[in-house]
Design a protein around this nucleic acid. Structure first.
Length: 803
RNA sequence: GGGCGAAUAACUCAGCUGGCUAGAGUGCCUGCCUUACAAGCAGGAUGUCGGGGGUUCAAGUCCCUCUUCGCCCA
């Protein structure tokens, strides 16, 4: 029972990881009879390297898992990967230097599987090295056939419930990726642009009108001109017609209050489609449809001489022509905010295409109610969810014109065009490979055209609770839904959190989980958000693991309050190392002092031992409260303060003499009793974060007494020892020790230097309580005597040793 | 433009529902080999709590306002 002088995490950490894995310490056992605590782990998109930001947020959830396991819950803690959809397609194209369009879908899917499998291996290896307590038997990936089946089942269920519709409608479209996208996948970006003042002539030949636009290439798509009816300057134009420059088609001039009088000339053209207002006008006034862009951003037949040009080139060409022909009055350079696709940064277009939608706009209130039923940690993030729902403008477009993803279980009848939905027992289906086993239900035809679109990846990842529960499968799991916890970062509230809540509501009129915890971001040392696209990623986790131990990095991950960002810096990492070392040394000390310790013994406890046990009770309570609120950093702080400041710096010094000497066996046994409890208790408070070193210490010292196979299966401390009087006088006496230490420090003396005496004054009612500590106080201060006097307050006078 | 959050020691941060002299770690200074730990211990210095108003016996904490920064959304 002796510990090495130094702790060696390089050797120790992999050993315990292996131990946990071989013994199945973290296996989920549905038959354990314990209450289930289920965690809806985020499936990371398999789209490249992993950075410290991942580690940061996953550790925070992992710590919570360990806490609840120690609290006696049966923890359902899966891992998973989101490996289908656009991110994985792009990643594969990059890795293999290919283009999806250039090969058959099946071949590209093969490549994707190959690439993502490699990346997933790397993830799994990394999580293992960080000591994650997930159950790898619960692993799922969103491209798994059974996951696809649940995803398709979800689609069929929503269709049956009437929440799904297919419609040819203006859709947010990325010309670069060649697919429809959802509102949640867009972001705003500022571009330098030019505001062109163009001259339209009136159809009646009576003059011209100025129209300002940033998108002159859409002139051929112009279907109307709008003015504000309250605009004195232009009101008279309403009802007349204008002639579009160069293209010469005539369009009506319409009045509508949505026109901003201040902007440009106060007259705007409406094109199909330049922005969302164009769409609203197009719908409201039943305007013509003149689409001039194809799915890849090139101009089509309707664009006349611009045909075949990419929109950028078309803009250049038409501006030149407008200037040549005298249609441009003026132009000025501006900074212009454009809605872009967040994946590739390409400005989005609004194109008309047949797409599948999930109806959500008509149930905003219900969705906000669902959000209210979930506990948000920290609470202020719920506001973001509310605002997102309130400001929704589109139903959820779930079809994507991509290759690698979950297909729609749908064919179309060649004869009558009706969609034919797969039968549930046939799922999963790939309509490109499979065909319906029945004739068309409307017309009896047997020739079908497959749906070649795939589903939005969020349509599947929004089902993670259902996937975890194996919803609708033969081996469906009971007691998983609603899940206990969703851990995620706050930047995907509008996507993952929102869509998951939406699906749970639509499928089962329930919430997906009871609690949601929002982690912040890891910042690089200069305080910037780490992101792959910005290339400012500090601390590759693999490199970090070479320099620091997993426990140190875990400690860093838990150093900030939930939801706060934290800097990845050398300084904070040093803190973790110091704590691990201190823990090692303190337990090493205890080990030597617990020889011949009899755990059966219930000795009569000395005042200081009653004091430290009471202090531990308070620390454990505070740590527990922190954990219950998902404030792991608070929990760690309380544990650390108790362990280092109270226990190591004071208590251990106070009882050292009693522990070393056999002169006072009763005193020694009392100290051993307390020491054992507070050391073992501290180890358990640190166990969720410092998973390896605590296990090492537990196995070396405590296992033979406690019997739990692993510290991580031991109960979370819930001590009830409390002696108010011991607490009061123990705390008060620290001042006496402090004064003695101060005296030595100021006299440049060693702490071991003897003192002649301490003259202590205290209020009459405290004298007796303090005097009971005399022996231990003399031991820790090395004072030969302590003289107690009645006084108005606590004072200490040090009498130095002779000479 | 709207929303959310932040601003506290040189640095990184804690300060819950208002209540003793505003705390911790790092860094800095002075010492100390003390039968666990020098990767340590003891002691010390350092703050117009972003600015300005207000409420209160009492404000880092509550209210108003301004400034700066971060994030989310238009």
């Amino acid at each position: 029972m002796t510990l090495a002088k130094r702790y060696n995490p390089k050797e120790s950490e992999p050993r315990w990881q292996k131990f946990w894995n071989e013994r199945g310490i973290f296996k989920y056992r549905s038959d354990s009879g314990k209450p289930v605590y289920s965690i809806d782990t985020p499936p990371p998109t398999v789209s490249g390297k992993i950075h410290m930001g991942h580690v940061f947020s996953y550790v925070q959830a992992e710590v919570i898992a360990r806490y609840h396991r120690m609290k006696g819950m049966e923890v359902f803690y899966p891992f998973c990967f989101d490996d289908n959809g656009l991110p994985s397609e792009r990643f594969t194209e990059k890795q293999k230097n290919v283009k999806a369009q250039d090969m058959p879908r099946s071949q590209f899917v093969e490549l994707c599987l190959e690439v993502t499998e490699e990346a997933e291996k790397m993830f799994r290896d990394l999580w293992t090295r960080f000591g994650f307590s997930c159950d790898w038997d619960l692993l799922y990936t969103t491209i798994d056939p059974w996951v696809q089946r649940i995803s398709q089942r979800s689609f069929l269920d929503l269709n049956e419930k009437g929440f799904v519709y297919r419609k040819e409608a203006p859709t947010l479209w990325c010309p670069e990726c060649g697919t429809a996208v959802a509102q949640a996948e867009t972001e705003d970006k500022d571009f330098p642009s030019v505001f062109h003042d163009l001259e339209f002539s009136l159809a009646d030949g009576r003059g011209t009108i100025p129209i300002a636009t940033t998108r002159p290439e859409l002139l051929p798509a112009c279907v109307a001109v709008f003015v504000n009816p309250s605009d004195e300057r232009w009101r008279h134009l309403i009802g007349k017609k204008a002639k579009v420059p160069i293209f010469d088609h005539e369009v009506e001039i319409i009045g509508d209050s949505k026109v901003d009088i201040e902007k440009g000339s106060g007259i705007v053209m409406c094109c199909t489609f330049g922005d969302t207002t164009d769409i609203e006008w197009w719908k409201e006034f039943r305007l013509d449809l003149r689409i001039v862009l194809d799915n890849n951003g090139h101009m089509n037949d309707l664009a006349g001489f611009l045909k075949g040009m990419y929109w950028k080139k078309a803009r250049k060409v038409i501006v030149e022509k407008l200037i040549d022909e005298g249609f441009q009055r003026d132009s000025k350079n501006i900074e212009h905010t454009v809605n872009v696709h967040e994946r590739c940064g390409t400005p989005l277009e609004y194109l008309i295409n047949m797409q599948w939608f999930i109806r959500i706009l008509d149930r905003k209130n219900k969705l906000i109610e669902c959000g209210n039923r979930v506990n948000w940690y920290p609470p202020h993030f719920k506001v973001r969810f509310d605002h997102w729902v309130e400001n929704l403008k589109w139903d959820w477009c779930i079809s994507r014109q991509l290759y690698y993803g979950v297909p729609f279980p749908v064919w179309y009848c060649e004869q009558c065009g009706e969609p034919f939905f797969a039968k549930e027992e046939d799922l999963p289906v790939d309509p490109l490979e499979d065909s319906p086993q029945q004739p068309c239900r409307s017309c009896g035809s047997t020739s079908f055209r497959p749906e070649s679109d795939i589903m939005d990846t969020w349509a599947t990842s929004s089902l993670t609770p259902q996937i975890n529960a194996r919803w609708g499968e033969s081996d469906e799991r009971e007691g998983i839904i609603p899940m206990s916890l969703r851990p995620q970062a706050h930047d995907i509230i509008r996507t993952w959190a929102f869509y998951t809540i939406t699906k749970a509501h639509l499928h089962s009129n329930d919430i997906p989980w009871r609690d949601i915890m929002m982690s912040g971001h890891a910042l690089n040392p200069s305080g910037e958000k780490m992101s792959k696209s910005k290339g400012n990623v500090a601390g590759d986790p693999l490199i970090a693991l070479e320099q620091y131990s997993a426990d140190e990095l875990r400690y860093w991950s838990c150093s900030s309050k939930l939801g706060n960002d934290v800097l990845f810096s050398e300084e904070v990492l040093g803190d973790g190392r110091r704590l691990v070392t201190k823990l090692w040394n303190a337990v090493k000390f205890a080990t030597g002092r617990l020889e011949n310790f009899n755990s059966e013994l219930e000795p009569e406890l000395r005042p200081y031992d009653r004091w430290i046990l009471s202090r531990f009770t308070i620390a454990a309570e505070r740590a527990t409260n922190g954990m219950e609120e998902y404030e792991y950093s608070v929990a760690m702080n309380k544990a650390e303060y108790f362990f280092w400041k109270v226990m190591c710096d004071n208590y251990l010094e106070i009882v050292k003499k009693r522990l070393y000497s056999d002169d006072d066996i009763a005193g020694k046994q009392s100290a051993q009793y307390a020491l054992y409890r507070i050391i073992y208790g501290s180890l358990r408070l640190f166990a969720p974060v410092l998973v390896h070193v605590t296990e090492e210490l537990y196995q070396a010292i405590f296992r033979k007494f406690e019997g739990h196979e692993s510290l991580h299966l031991a109960p979370w401390p819930n001590p009830d020892f409390m002696d108010e009087e011991a607490l009061k006088y123990g705390d008060m006496s620290l001042h006496i020790i402090e004064e003695a230490r101060k005296f030595k420090s100021e006299g440049n003396l060693s702490m071991a230097a003897p003192l002649k005496a301490l003259k202590v004054t205290a209020q009459a009612e405290d004298l007796e309580g303090l005097a009971r500590l005399q022996d231990d106080l003399m031991n820790v201060t090395r004072a030969e005597n302590i003289l107690w006097t009645k006084g108005s307050r606590l004072t200490v006078k040090v009498v130095p040793a002779d000479g």
